[in-house]
């Protein structure tokens, strides 16, 4: 007979692995919109971890900041600048 805590620890391990994979791919991704979406996956898995560790107050603060406000701010910034990340370090100056 499986107990409830066993399934809880299994769920924690699963979300930890998914958040690690999402973070690694978000660092390597050169398309910035895909990087924002991958960081949203990482935020969702961290919400599950905060919930399972019995910290609903931290989860309630973490959801609006990392699922709502952070992708909004980053998408607004990407709309003003370039969409892909360049390998060259030269600054692309937009005069107009």
């Amino acid at each position: 007979m499986i107990e409830l805590s066993t399934l809880t620890y299994l769920f924690m391990a699963m979300t930890g692995v998914v958040s690690l994979v999402a973070t690694y791919l978000a660092i390597l991704e050169s398309n910035l919109i895909k990087a924002v979406v991958l960081s949203a996956i990482q935020s969702t898995t961290y919400v599950i971890l905060f919930y399972l560790l019995m910290a609903p107050d931290i989860a309630l603060v973490y959801i609006p900041v990392s699922v709502g406000l952070y992708p909004a701010a980053v998408l607004f910034l990407i709309k003003k600048t370039e969409r892909t990340e360049n390998d060259s370090n030269e600054v692309v100056a937009s005069e107009d």
Binding site: V47, I63, P64, V67, L75, I78, K79
Partner: peptide, 29 residues
């Protein structure tokens, strides 16, 4: 522990906001 239920409402609302942000970005691009 019934106090944990407050996470569900907030999660449903803010994920909808993420959806609308990405849709608005794709359409305005």
């Amino acid at each position: 522990s019934p106090i944990l239920i407050a996470v569900a409402m907030v999660l449903a609302l803010w994920v909808f906001a993420l959806d609308i942000y990405v849709a608005k970005y794709l359409e305005s691009r």
